[in-house]
Amino acid sequence: MTATKAPIETPSKQPPVRRPGDRIFAGTAKGSGIFILLVLAGVAAFLIGEAIPALTAPSADIPGGEGLAGYVGPLILGTLLGAVLALLVATPLAVGIALYVTYYAPRRIAAVLGYVIDLLAAIPSVVYGFWGLAVLAPALVPFHVWTAEHLGWIPFFAGPASTSGRTMLTVGLVLAVMILPIISAIAREVFSQAPALHREAALALGATRWEMIKLAVLPYGKSGVIAGAMLGLGRALGETMAVAIILSGGAGATVNLISNSNPSTIASNIALRFPEATGLGVNTLIASGLVLFLITLAVNMLARWVVNRRADFSGAN
């Protein structure tokens, strides 16, 4: 626009100024976005391609002889049982921990506790598996017996109680400990970001600390907690080592959490059977992996939907 410039034509014809830095950054960002899509597409294509022989094979040829649904069905059930149990145990606990660390604990204790919980996430899952097998399973045997006696009328606790403790219940609890740091770390983060403006608004209305949390912190952090829980659920669904070590799966579909016969989970079943699998067996295992992939996808989409459902009220505006 300076006087030395030639007369400007219609401004709309002038291309906007593009600086090299901008272009490089935009290109890298776009490339990263495309890359992740390619990876996802590649994995999906591999899973579908390798699963097709199992999907089309006559049911007698599938290991177990009851068709693909008969083979994968119990595994799906086992996967969901363990993961949902873990989620049910871990989420309230994680929210409690996060609230304690952010709003109740003295600052020094809060910092230490935060580190300790983060440390839980650093333990390899093999270690969790051995711990579950060697410590938690025997320790839980009396609890198994108790639930079989007193809660036996609930199908989940129908018994007979396992004497080794190597049950779906133990697996669920180990998984709960494993996903606890994920959920609580995210919950802690969102709770600590609840705006002071709204917390003070609640307090000025005469809210007690708990009421302040109910009014200004939990609604604000809800979507974050859901996101954290879904991340945790994703980890629990896909967890392999810990489950493979603790559970001697292979039994049919049962929701009984405390007996010796348990369905295995998809991930641990693949890990255990893959080395010896041949031919159609491999395709069957990959088909079960495809199912796990779809379950995880569905869980994530469900979480998105829950988070977006009341976007107007999310506090983001």
Binding site: E200, A201, A216, G315
Partner: peptide
């Protein structure tokens, strides 16, 4: 202090309606 605040209301510098509420 909770009782005090129930008797003495407050309006803040920046409007702060609870965003998750109607």
């Amino acid at each position: 202090p909770v009782d005090v605040r129930r008797q003495i209301g407050m309006v803040f510098q920046r409007p702060n309606p609870f965003p998750t509420m109607s």
